[in-house]
C-alpha cells in the first residue's frame, strides 16, 4: 500500500522528531564523556573502585561506596513503597466508598506534586531529629529510605490504580460466579493480572529514586562510606555531584562527571532488568 502525499510528510516529520529525541540522549552521554575524559585519561579505571575512599583533593577517587549507597537507598525505598502503594490503590479501587476514594485519590495526586526539596526540609527538621533521638547521629540511610519512599509512593499507587481500573469487568463477574470474596479476587486475580503495569510503575518509581538529589542530600548525612547499619550515613551518586560540583576544579570536577557516567550506567542496568522481567512475564 503506497502512502499518500500527506502521509509521506507525516512520516518525515515523525522521523525527524524521533531522531531529535534520540540525539538528545546521545548528546548528553557525549557531553558527559567529554567532561569526564581528563579523569578517564589520567586515572586507570580500577582506581574508581580500589582507591582508599573519596578524597578528590588528595587524589583518591573511589566511587564504589556511593554506588552501593545509591542502590541501598533505591532498593529500600522501593521495597517500602510497593506494599504501601499497591495497598493504597486496592483500598481506593475496591474498598473505599466513592466519596472517600475520590478524596483519597486527590490526596495521593497532591503527594505526587510536592517538590522534593520540601520533603527534604521536612526530613531535615522533623524526621532526622526523631531518628537522632532513637539512634544518633540522625542523618542516615534510614532517613533517606523513608523520605524517598514517600516521594515514589504516589507513582506506584497511581499506576497501580490505573491498571486495576482498566481490568475487564468479566474478571469480577467470573470471580463472583466462583463465589470468591473481594480479597480473594484482588489477590488471586486482579494483582496477578496487572503484573506488567505494576512493573512499569515500579521502574518509573525506581528511576525517580535513583535520580533523587535534593531531599537525599538533606537527610542522608553524605559521608562516603559503606554503611554498616540503617543508622549509618551514606552518600549517593547524585548527591556527590550536587554537593561538590559548585566548588570543584580540574581533576575533581572531571571525576564528578565520571560519577554522572556511572549513574547513567546504573539507570541503564535498571531499564534492562525491567525489560528482561517484563519479557519473562509475556512469555
Amino acid at each position: 500500500m503506497s502512502l499518500t502525499r500527506n502521509e509521506q510528510w507525516l512520516v518525515r516529520i515523525l522521523q525527524g522528531l524521533a531522531l531529535i529525541s534520540g540525539m538528545i540522549l546521545i548528546l548528553i552521554v557525549g557531553f558527559l564523556l567529554r567532561e569526564a575524559w581528563p579523569a578517564l585519561r589520567v586515572l586507570p579505571p580500577s582506581r574508581f573502585w580500589q582507591d582508599p575512599g573519596w578524597h578528590p583533593l588528595e587524589q583518591a577517587f573511589n566511587l564504589l561506596p556511593m554506588v552501593i549507597g545509591t542502590l541501598l537507598v533505591t532498593c529500600g525505598a522501593v521495597c517500602l513503597a510497593i506494599p504501601l502503594g499497591v495497598l493504597a490503590a486496592v483500598f481506593c479501587q475496591y474498598y473505599a466508598p466513592p466519596w472517600l476514594a475520590q478524596g483519597y485519590r486527590r490526596l495521593i495526586e497532591l503527594l505526587a506534586g510536592i517538590p522534593s526539596v520540601v520533603f527534604g526540609l521536612w526530613g531535615l527538621v522533623v524526621l532526622v531529629p526523631l531518628i537522632a533521638r532513637l539512634h544518633p547521629p540522625g542523618p542516615s540511610l534510614l532517613a533517606g529510605i523513608f523520605v524517598v519512599a514517600l516521594m515514589i509512593l504516589p507513582t506506584i499507587a497511581l499506576v497501580t490504580e490505573a491498571s486495576l481500573a482498566n481490568l475487564p469487568r468479566e474478571y469480577w463477574r467470573g470471580a463472583a460466579a466462583l463465589g470468591l470474596g473481594t480479597w480473594a479476587t484482588v489477590q488471586g486475580i486482579c494483582l496477578p493480572a496487572i503484573r506488567s503495569g505494576l512493573g512499569t510503575g515500579v521502574m518509573l518509581a525506581a528511576a525517580r529514586a535513583l535520580g533523587e538529589t535534593m531531599a537525599v542530600l538533606m537527610v542522608c548525612g553524605n559521608v562516603v562510606q559503606m554503611p554498616d547499619s540503617l543508622f549509618a550515613s551514606v552518600r549517593t551518586l547524585t548527591v556527590n555531584i550536587a554537593l561538590e560540583m559548585a566548588y570543584a576544579l580540574d581533576l575533581h570536577r572531571s571525576a564528578l562527571f565520571v560519577t554522572g557516567l556511572v549513574l547513567m550506567a546504573v539507570v541503564m542496568g535498571l531499564v534492562l532488568l525491567t525489560e528482561a522481567w517484563q519479557g519473562a512475564i509475556h512469555r
Partner: peptide, 27 residues
C-alpha cells in the same frame, strides 16, 4: 588533611550545617 577527618555527617552550605546541629544536641 581531609582524609584524617572521621565525619558522621557531611554538609554543603552553612545553613544546612546550622540546621543539622540544631536538630541534634550532640553535634
Amino acid at each position: 588533611t581531609a582524609k584524617d577527618i572521621q565525619a558522621d555527617v557531611v554538609i554543603g552550605d552553612n545553613e544546612q550545617g546550622i540546621k543539622t546541629v540544631v536538630g541534634n544536641p550532640q553535634a
